[in-house]
Simulated assay, not measured.
Amino acid sequence: MSRPAAPARHTPGATGPTAADGTTAADGTALAGIPAPRTGRAGAWAELLRLPALFTVPGDALAGAAATGARPGPRTLLAIGASLCLYEAGMALNDWADRAEDAAERPHRPLPSGRIRPAAALTAAGALTGAGLALAAGAGRPALAVATPLAATVWAYDLALKHTPAGPAAMATARALDLLLGAAATGGGTRAALPSAALLGTHTLAVTAVSRRETTGGSVLAPLAALATTGALTRLVTHRRTRPPAGRRAAAAPGLPGPGPAGPPARTTGVLTAALGAAYAATAARPYAHAALNPSPPLTQRAVGGGIRATIPLQAALTARSGSAGTALLVAALIPAGRMFARRAGMRKVSIT
Rank of each mutant, 00 (worst) to 15 (best):
L135M: 14
A137E: 06
A137T: 09
G138C: 01
G138L: 06
G140K: 05
A143Q: 09
A143T: 05
A145V: 14
V146L: 07
A147I: 02
A147F: 03
T148N: 05
P149I: 06
L150Q: 04
L150S: 06
A151M: 03
A151Y: 03
A152T: 04
A152H: 02
T153Y: 00
T153C: 06
W155H: 14
W155V: 15
Y157Q: 05
Y157S: 06
Y157F: 12
D158P: 09
L159T: 12
L159F: 02
A160C: 10
L161Q: 12
K162R: 14
K162Q: 14
K162Y: 00
T164E: 06
P165H: 00
P165Q: 01
P168V: 05
A169F: 12
A169W: 14
A169L: 15
M171H: 13
T173Y: 06
A174Y: 07
A176I: 05
L177V: 07
L177C: 04
D178C: 15
D178I: 05
L180M: 08
G182A: 04
G182N: 08
A183R: 10
T186V: 09
G187I: 13
G187T: 08
G187P: 12
G187D: 07
G187W: 03
G189V: 05
G189P: 10
T190W: 11
T190C: 14
T190F: 10
R191K: 11
A193N: 00
A193D: 00
A193M: 01
A193Q: 00
L194M: 08
P195W: 05
S196C: 12
A197H: 09
A197C: 09
A197F: 09
A197I: 08
A197N: 07
L200I: 13
L200D: 11
G201Y: 10
H203N: 11
T204G: 01
T204V: 00
A206Y: 04
A206P: 10
V207H: 07
T208P: 02
T208I: 01
V210C: 07
V210S: 00
V210L: 07
S211I: 13
R213H: 15
E214L: 05
T215I: 00
T215Y: 03
S219M: 09
S219Y: 10
V220W: 06
V220I: 11
V220N: 00
L221G: 12
L221R: 15
L221W: 14
L221D: 15
L224F: 06
A225H: 07
A225Y: 06
A225K: 07
A225W: 08
A225I: 10
A226T: 01
A226R: 04
A226S: 05
L227H: 11
